[in-house]
């Protein structure tokens, strides 16, 4: 498996507070990489550096590199909108737009210039199928998305992200606001999606990391403590701090 993203000596500050310290990591293509760690450890912050969502916070300062397909995404020549089209994101709280299910999915393709109704219909159906929600919503595509349940909304958000045909899908604790059944559906979906996409998921739930991820990175106080195959990291952690965390001694 080849690597699709690499972070080199990445550090990040919010004003004077350092939130990430020299993070180095390589993320393999078409796999699921999980970021775990206690609250405030920097895992979500790091996830957001991968599609430059941190740019939106005015006081952020970033040094180091994040390479995607060999290109440093923090380079001045990079078109950040194009980058985010290729590296999609699903947020912690389901956040469908207050519009119809159809318009939610079509939003991204329309933004990128697709106007043909036939083409849009096709993309909407395919994206909803890929997100395993087509059968539930196919008869109410014109209904407002806010009328769906939380779990459905989150799968709709995944479908919306897929509609722009990204290469990578970043998921920021996508199940933390959902019930167990919805959670397991999202997990199944993630496993299904890794055939075609690279998935990076931040999770609070260590069982979730074990269940779905190929590789796991453990963050603590802004540092990447340990990174490796999920099975190995959870069975034979090399760092004492990782062991303490996964055995539930803190966090």
């Amino acid at each position: 498996m080849s690597d699709i993203m690499t972070a080199k000596d990445l550090s990040l500050w919010y004003d004077k507070t350092q939130a990430l310290k020299n993070v180095n990591i390589t993320i393999p293509e078409k796999s699921i990489t999980a970021f775990i760690g206690p609250s405030g450890c920097g895992k979500s912050t790091f996830l957001k550096t991968l599609n430059r969502m941190n740019d939106l916070i005015p006081s952020v300062k970033i040094i180091g590199e994040v390479c995607y397909n060999g290109q440093n995404i923090y380079d001045n020549s990079v078109d950040v909108n194009e980058l985010r089209r290729e590296i999609g994101m699903v947020f912690q709280k389901p956040n469908p737009f207050p519009m119809s299910i159809y318009d939610n999915i079509a939003y991204g393709p329309r933004t990128h210039g697709i106007k043909s109704k036939v083409k849009l219909d096709e993309i909407v159906e395919q994206s909803l199928r890929d997100a395993a929600i087509w059968d539930e919503v196919k008869d109410r595509l014109k209904k407002n998305a806010l009328g769906m349940s939380g779990g459905q909304q989150q799968r709709l958000c995944i479908a919306r992200a897929l509609a722009v045909k990204p290469k990578i899908l970043l998921m920021d604790e996508p199940t933390s606001a959902l019930d167990p059944i919805s959670t397991s559906r999202i997990e199944e979906l993630a496993i299904e999606l890794k055939k075609s996409y690279t998935i990076v998921i931040v999770t609070h739930n260590m069982q979730q990391a074990v269940r779905i991820s190929d590789n796991t990175a453990f963050f603590l106080l802004g540092e990447l403590i340990e990174y490796g195959e999920t099975e190995k990291l959870f069975s034979q952690p090399t760092d004492k701090r990782t062991e303490d965390y996964i055995t539930g001694r803190f966090g």
């Binding site: 599609n51 969502m53 939106l56 909108n81 194009e82 980058l83 985010r84 089209r85 999609g88 994101m89 947020f91 709280k93 956040n95 469908p96 737009f97 207050p98 519009m99 939003y107 991204g108 933004t111 990128h112 958000c157 919306r160 992200a161 722009v164």
Partner: peptide, 23 residues
């Protein structure tokens, strides 16, 4: 969250304001 979702799909800030925030 609405605006973040739009930006994460690759929309520019101005597109986001007029197509998500204003509606």
């Amino acid at each position: 969250e609405y605006e973040d979702a739009s930006l994460a799909l690759g929309a520019t800030p101005v597109e986001t304001y007029f197509r998500v925030s204003v509606p």
